[in-house]
């Protein structure tokens, strides 16, 4: 359905020094710099997939989505969406996609929601009966009825987000691009939105490309994960395989009687001997060790600690996407990739 082949996007930026002096200086000289927002990425997306597309701010997520929607032209490489090249056939492509930007509404601020829908019906040329059926379905699915007569500016963020999603799906697009659709929403609205996305995907086989910073969105929705860092896709695969890719990390939590500095030191030294990247931290009486289980066995750690002191309780858990995302945002896991 979507093919992206060796796509690169360069941007030229002009640098200004900071502060008042910098601004004055900026009047005369500008430093030019070319950055690769997206660097030689390739992937293919099949019909009905839900892609969780993650990466830190500025990693290249939005640029990728803008290229797929035809708003941006790639500097090099090829993109085809349902056989069309988006930036060349932007209007044709636009008929088959729905787009939601969490940060920015696509609705008309002063118009009642209902009227917004009628305008979109005309813009997308949706036949009357199809429109009616679709609208009923979306109104039910997203629970919109209660505020459909209100002007958009009076809607709460959660209502607006649901309205935006409905507006993007009115013309029954095959592909739905969602850029941070749950940003700033409360848990209940998040649930509603996720349910709606799932339902659209199951009933209508809508392909979904979802960027988010909320890993629970990914956990619940994504059938496949793509991670982008500094313009390069560093992971593309299933949720389950992600641990293999980013080191088979686990976390051991130990509750200890009389946790002392010396003990901490000793455990730390012992762990680092086998796994240089292991992390040992403590909070009150809890000792938390993150380690790669290919290098360091749980039994070794447990044995060592128990020989030193009394362990009251312990917990062992696999690293999840949340942990990976944390490491990703903290400064990159590019180098860690095994």
């Amino acid at each position: 359905m979507i093919q992206v082949k060796n796509v690169t996007k360069d941007f030229t930026i002009y640098k200004k020094d900071s502060g008042f002096k910098g601004a004055v200086k900026g009047l005369f000289v500008r430093k030019k710099e070319i950055i690769k927002a997206v660097n030689d990425i390739s992937f293919e997306i099949k019909k009905g997939e839900i892609i969780g597309y993650i990466g830190a701010n500025g990693a290249g997520k939005s640029t990728t989505i803008k290229m797929m929607t035809g708003v941006l032209t790639p500097s090099s490489g090829e993109i085809t969406v349902s056989g069309l090249i988006p930036h060349e056939n932007r209007i044709e492509n636009a008929k088959h996609i729905g787009v939601v930007f969490g940060q920015r509404t696509q609705l008309w601020w002063d118009l009642p929601l209902e009227e917004t829908f009628t305008i979109l019906k005309e813009i997308y040329n949706v036949p009357d009966d199809a429109y009616k059926e679709r609208l009923d379905y979306l109104v039910n699915l997203l629970d919109i009825q209660a505020f459909i007569k209100q002007p958009v500016r009076t809607l709460s963020l959660g209502q607006r987000m649901r309205a935006d999603l409905a507006a993007a799906m009115l013309h029954s697009p095959d592909i739905l691009y969602l850029d941070e659709p749950t940003i700033g929403l409360d848990v209940l609205v998040k649930e509603k939105i996720r349910f709606a996305i799932k339902d659209l995907n199951e009933k209508y086989k809508v392909t979904v490309i979802l960027t988010t910073h909320d890993m629970s969105d990914i956990q619940e929705l994504a059938t496949r994960i793509m991670i982008i860092e500094k313009g390069v896709i560093i992971y593309d695969g299933s949720k389950e395989d992600i641990n293999k890719r980013f080191g088979n990390n686990r976390m051991l939590e130990l509750k200890i009687e009389n946790l002392s500095e010396t003990l901490l030191q000793e455990v730390s030294v012992m762990c680092h001997k086998k796994d240089k990247k292991s992390i040992v931290i403590h909070e009150d009486v809890v000792l938390r060790i993150t380690f790669n289980q290919d290098r360091l066995a749980v039994a070794d750690i447990l044995g060592f600690v128990m020989s030193q002191c009394k362990v009251l309780d312990f917990k062992l858990r696999d690293q999840d996407i949340e942990d990976i995302a944390k490491r990703l945002y903290a400064g990159g896991i590019h180098e860690e990739v095994v």
Partner: peptide, 20 residues
């Protein structure tokens, strides 16, 4: 960034802009 909106709809973007 609001301008993106006009490029995401299947009608002439200038018409969309002016009609609004």
């Amino acid at each position: 960034g609001s301008f993106d909106k006009y490029l995401l709809r299947p009608i002439n973007p200038l018409f969309h802009l002016i009609a609004e």
